[in-house]
Design a protein around this nucleic acid. Structure first.
Lengths: 204, 204
DNA sequence: TAGATTGTTAATCGATTAACAATC
DNA sequence: TAGATTGTTAATCGATTAACAATC
């Protein structure tokens, strides 16, 4: 019982389209329909889901609200996670104002920056806090996940602080390969990697 | 001669750390050293690179400037690509102001929005243009790549316009699965997918 | 019942790794 | 030369797909 990470990586996409279908008022779907929407084979979707239980019915497929509930449980987003956002530059501001987190399992609980000009200012209902208070505030709030939007040159130092503060997962927007101890997860959001991947295929 | 996409997907990361090592003033590296930096096996890196040629020397490894040049050629980022940015909201503004594109093969050549309040305003040196002029402007500028930062509800309609205008690759920030004809590439940047992937592993 | 679709097995396909001769 | 590291082969490992009995 140790499910391949590549399967886990597809579950958020399954959940996402199920929520989309549900918003359309659709109650039931099939591995076939999901596969068309995601560009995957129906066999793969059935195989992936069967790792966690028997969620469907022969002949009719999957009850969407039930499958959503199951996937939220599996991914642990039936609860709402607090996030610490570190770096209140342009990108940090955009993320802090983004409305899409809350009903998908997350909300920004605190924002930090080191710039005295920014500390104390507000982004929506959030107040920008002094990065010096990062560790105590993260512990105080019981935050386990951070989003990192500081400049590349500062990313590793801030990461070290986050690790000390007990952060267990970091979504890193800085174009840097972060070093973290085992047990701490990092995922990178680097648009340039995605763009360069596509230019390989795009005609000159 | 059709190289697996999973290999292509790693090349931008190779290029990225080589540029990093180069900035440190380092001239030479090995598959071993690159593997440590990226968390990959040295065998995999050698195998990946060997798909495209013999870039190393036994005993000494890889000349960094030479390997950078080769990877840029392969990924076609030895030229600079124009990008159309569609959607001048918070995220669009953050991307338009981001300094990190230019020396990695890209620059934002035009920004579009549909809001009359925004059209005509500036973001840095860029003027926000009317989205109604999307297709002619993209053709005029010879733009092949777009970044999409419009609201989810508008993403598919704008995508259709981009396709008609001849765009060949779309980096999509809207939390929506876009439908495009074959021949048009789409890559999604969805932080929530990444966060939900991590929460599977993070203790409650 | 007839039609549809699941969960699962076995076969296929593809990717990664170990190992080493070649050679700088 | 001795040490290091490549490029590549063969073996291993893992993921995807095809197919179908079970059954709603």
């Amino acid at each position: 019982m140790d499910i391949p990470d590549i399967i886990i990586s597809r579950l958020p996409r399954y959940l996402h389209i199920l929520e989309y279908l549900s918003r359309q008022g659709i109650q039931t779907t099939s591995s076939q329909e999901m596969g068309v929407l995601l560009g995957l084979s129906s066999a793969q979707i059935r195989k992936d889901l069967s790792q966690f239980g028997e969620f469907g019915k022969q002949g009719t497929g999957y009850e969407i609200p039930f499958l959503i509930q199951q996937l939220r449980n599996i991914l642990k987003v039936n609860q709402t996670w607090k996030i610490a956002l570190v770096g209140a530059g342009d990108l940090g501001h955009a993320i802090a104002r983004y409305q899409g987190f809350e009903n998908r399992g997350f909300y920004i609980a605190a924002v930090f920056d080191k710039d005295p000009e920014k500390i104390g200012r507000s982004i929506g209902t959030l107040r920008i806090e002094d990065i010096k208070t990062l560790a105590p505030r993260i512990r105080e709030e019981g935050i386990r996940i951070a989003m990192l939007t500081v400049p590349a040159a500062e990313a590793q130092a801030v990461t070290n602080d986050l690790v000390v503060a007990g952060i267990q997962a970091i979504l890193n927007y800085a174009p840097v390969v972060l070093k973290v101890p085992t047990g701490v997860l990092v995922k990178d959001i680097d648009p340039i990697n995605s763009l360069q991947h596509m230019t390989y295929y795009v005609g000159k």
